[in-house]
Design a protein around this nucleic acid. Sequence first.
RNA 1: GGCCCAUUCGUCUAUCGGUUAGGACGUUAGAUUUUCAUUCUAGAAAGAGGGGUUCGACUCCCCUAUGGGCUACCA
Length: 505
Amino acid sequence: MTNKKVRVRFAPSPTGALHIGGVRTALYNYLFAKQQGGDMILRIEDTDSQRFVPGAEAYIVEAFEWLGIKFDEGVHVGGKYGPYRQSERRDIYKTYVDQLLSDGLAYMAFDTPAELDVQRAAILNFQYDASTRMQMRNSLTLSTEEVAALVAAGNQYVVRIKIEPNEDIVVNDLIRGKVVFNSLVLDDKVLYKSADQLPTYHLANIVDDHLMEVSHVIRGEEWLPSAPLHVLLYRFLGWEDTMPSFAHLPLLLKPDGNGKLSKRDGDRLGFPVFPLQWTDPKTNDISSGYRENGYLPEAVVNFLALLGWNPGTEKEIFSMEELIKTFSLERCSKSGAKFDYEKGKWFNHQYIQLQSNAELATLFLPVLAEKGVEAPFEMVEQVMALTKERVSFVKELWDQASFFFVAPTSYDEKMAKKRWKENSAALLAELATLLEGIDDFTAARTEGDIKVWIEAKEYNLGGIMTAFRLALVGEGKGPYIFDIIAVIGKEETLARIQRAIDVLK
RNA sequence: GGCCCAUUCGUCUAUCGGUUAGGACGUUAGAUUUUCAUUCUAGAAAGAGGGGUUCGACUCCCCUAUGGGCUACCA
């Protein structure tokens, strides 16, 4: 290990919305980099022109902004190692493809996809490698003249890495330790396609990581099988001494059944798998997002951080700063984690409680506006103080708080049957008279006066309060009554009592 | 099929040879409350199986099973 600066990258392919598993990978990269005082790079891997989806890149940038994951370099912020979009680095890759070719470490192959299909159908477990390459149409089997003629005639070709069999290739993984692969099981992977003059992921990835001086490659476990190929590529290019360290993260699995969490699971199981809502530009299908579902970005970050990593203590609530301080690759788990949406809800509940009343009121204002309610900000703040501990999401606040803003127009039948007695109307009328005489309408004052009154008359506290609640709320729920009337005020309180008496008799 | 990775309560996990195997989510029961919710307390709940190594294995090794990933001119 050298003492070179820590530089990590998150390198998504712009093929659609950013998957929540990708978000976690990016988060771990970020936490690691920031802890080490290093840089975080956003590189767009758009080497597959077929799968490019417009808008995906902008979505990725917006998602990280929302989550509070900041990049030091990248497609959206620039930097000294650009361009950060692989489609803009064609010439760079070509240089190294040519180098591998002239060093005899790669070769040109002219087999068409159709011809390869024929081989795959004919030979069980066909693999383009040392055992089969001499039967194929490539620069190893064709003469120099034939190759030149084919190229001159406009035939498309690919460049394949030439892997020698029977060599053990060691991948040192920071999470898993030494993993050994025999080169026999590796195939001569395509590195470059003449058709679009772009490299495949493997070559582009190694060239970019090297040129961008990436020190640590932290990525999903699905890349572990191709890690030996990458090690070989570093070696073939002469860069093995500065090869980055690898860390392969466990995958996020479906909450039910089997397999890794996929884009489709979200709406099938009723929770988002994307940070932000995403509309597919081709089909117009909408996939829900954490942001639109009412999640606080801090909660999503905290939740994701603990899915595959733990601090070794019993602390569960972590700010981004605390995560940066505490995170370590050594404490990442090795096995996949089933995605537990219920726990995610709990995290959001915790973060709602951590918000100030003013912050929550600001978040709640749009919901109020949607319902056509206008209310003074201070009042909304007071309502937040009384209701926030009851909810996990901002939008649930409406269920808990609507009666503060809108008087009940009907009364819950069950509740009325149970709580509205023969004498309720008379008692509430008496209560109204009492309240009318109180000028200082604070909870402390009204509570004191009402309790004195009830005691003096030897009334039943519960009976009166539940009927009172029915009049105020319309059903049997909500915070302390005296807090409610302090917020809605004397006039409104009296109006609601009168209305209940009129309607329920 | 081949290669690789993994395996502790339903779920996320702690344990780095000696513990009553701990915590959290969820769940169950109680308590508190004028209601509902919150909150609080308590409970149920786990080392895949089989061999070793060792005075002693959840922990180390092997085998089996199971789960997962990869096996494209996708990343």
